[in-house]
Simulated assay, not measured.
Amino acid sequence: MEELALWQLWWAWLAGALGLAILEVIAPGFIFLGFAVGAAIVALLVLLPLKISLVALLVIFAATSLIAWIVLRRLFRNPDDQTRIFHEDINK
């Protein structure tokens, strides 16, 4: 039986996703949650009987993490998330 590297194990990617999701609870901001979604998607890809290289997995991880982060920021942003401009001194 061929010995697998750690990046070829689906449960390692899933454990990383779980760790990142827990880290998101500690430091909210949807950054770690985007990475967790990317790692979970890569775990699903590794679970399939495909031979995907490490470079391809890292590219997929990066792309899906970025897309997940953008989607999460748009879904959960504050409705009045706009910059306030003051035309006079507010300390008067």
Rank of each mutant, 00 (worst) to 15 (best):
M1P: 09
L4I: 14
L4P: 15
W7M: 06
Q8I: 06
Q8E: 13
Q8M: 12
Q8Y: 15
L9I: 08
L9F: 02
L9H: 06
W10S: 03
W10A: 06
A12R: 01
A12P: 04
W13M: 06
L14I: 14
G16A: 07
A17V: 04
G19I: 14
G19Y: 07
G19N: 07
L23T: 12
I26H: 13
I26V: 11
A27K: 08
P28D: 04
G29M: 10
G29A: 11
F30H: 05
F30R: 06
F32K: 02
F32R: 00
G34Q: 13
G34H: 04
F35V: 04
A36D: 03
A36V: 09
A36E: 13
A36H: 06
V37F: 09
G38N: 10
A39E: 01
A40M: 09
A40C: 00
I41K: 00
I41C: 02
I41G: 00
L47Q: 13
P49M: 12
P49H: 12
L50D: 12
L50P: 02
L50M: 01
L50S: 10
L50I: 14
I52F: 03
I52H: 10
S53V: 00
L54S: 11
V55T: 13
A56S: 05
A56K: 14
A56M: 14
V59D: 08
V59C: 13
I60A: 09
F61K: 05
F61I: 05
A62D: 02
A63P: 01
A63T: 13
A63D: 05
A63I: 15
S65N: 12
S65Q: 05
S65W: 08
L66T: 05
I67S: 13
I67A: 14
W69L: 14
W69E: 10
I70K: 15
I70Y: 01
V71Y: 07
L72N: 09
L72K: 07
R73N: 15
R73G: 00
R74W: 10
L75Q: 13
F76S: 01
F76V: 03
F76H: 03
R77G: 14
R77F: 02
Q82R: 11
T83A: 05
F86H: 12
E88L: 12
D89A: 13
I90M: 04
I90C: 04
I90A: 07
N91K: 10
